[in-house]
């Protein structure tokens, strides 16, 4: 079965005031898959995510070239950039709880979207927290500050928040940095479940995490996409570039 193309990136280049972060990246993410991006630090993984969500607008020096098509439509041609961001959820490396209660954190995006009915919001909050495997731990203290949760719980809170607006795609940027191994495993299980409903892009510096989860994997090195392929094939040695296998085997990075 050939799944539909969710995201098509062709010849993407990004630079920050003359300093190149990414050049000539082309890849395709299919619907209902986990697509992982691996690579050492400074290889342009985070910049890649920023370009997809049009977060380049936050950084005035950031210049993006090439084409990105989401659902077959060039993201530069989206007239309402806020709607684009609403359909692409992002989870940052370090959990960013807004200075609000747990409930308000998760209800933030739905409220922005104009949902006011308490019952509807309650339902969204519960569903999102359940999907992020956090519901059981916080259901009795939804009104307390989100920043009082532990690091792992906060990260799941940000995942719940990203899921609250029913995105079509979820991008996770090294989500496991601030999370303990047990929580990491729980989140990974949850992502496998989530894959049935949405498309996931997983940026990770844990090679084994990509192996466990991803259908396709891209290897980034110093701003270039060295290789894209099926994860299983890549990890069983079917690589086109020697640097990929060296990185996977932990010789550098």
């Amino acid at each position: 079965m050939v799944a539909a193309k969710k995201l098509e990136v062709s010849n993407l280049s990004i630079d920050y005031g003359g300093k190149t972060a990414i050049s000539g990246v082309s890849l395709t993410v299919r619907e209902h898959e986990i697509f992982s991006i691996i690579g050492p630090a400074n290889s342009g993984k985070t910049s890649f995510l920023k370009a997809i969500n049009r977060m380049d607008l936050f950084t005035s020096s950031m210049r993006v070239g090439g084409d990105i098509a989401f659902n077959g439509k060039n993201i530069r041609q989206w007239r309402n950039i806020y709607a684009l961001r609403q359909s692409i959820g992002v989870v940052f490396p370090l959990p960013i709880g807004l200075p609000l209660s747990i409930y308000d954190n998760v209800a933030f995006a739905p409220r922005l979207a104009g949902i006011k009915r308490a019952s509807e919001l309650d339902e969204i909050v519960e569903r999102s927290l359940k999907r992020a495997a956090l519901w059981d731990e916080v259901k009795d203290r939804l009104k307390s500050l989100g920043s009082l949760l532990s690091g792992g719980q906060q990260q799941r809170l940000t995942i719940a928040r990203a899921l609250s607006q029913n995105p079509q795609m979820l991008m996770l940027d090294e989500f496991s940095i601030a999370v303990d191994p047990v929580t990491t495993m729980r989140i990974e299980e949850m992502l496998k479940e989530l894959k049935k409903e949405i498309t996931i892009i997983l940026v990770t510096n844990l090679v084994q995490q990509a192996r466990r989860l991803a259908d396709h994997t891209a290897f980034f090195l110093t701003g270039q996409c060295i290789e894209v392929g099926e994860t299983d094939a890549m990890f069983t040695g079917e690589v086109k570039d020697v640097r990929t296998s060296e990185y996977i085997q932990g010789r550098f990075g």
Binding site: N53, M55, A83, I96, F108, L112, A162
Partner: peptide, 15 residues
């Protein structure tokens, strides 16, 4: 990071 988090969720500047 609060601003980025909120904007990444599709909040407008005013929101």
């Amino acid at each position: 990071r609060y601003r980025e988090a909120a904007e990444a969720m599709g909040a407008t500047r005013w929101q």
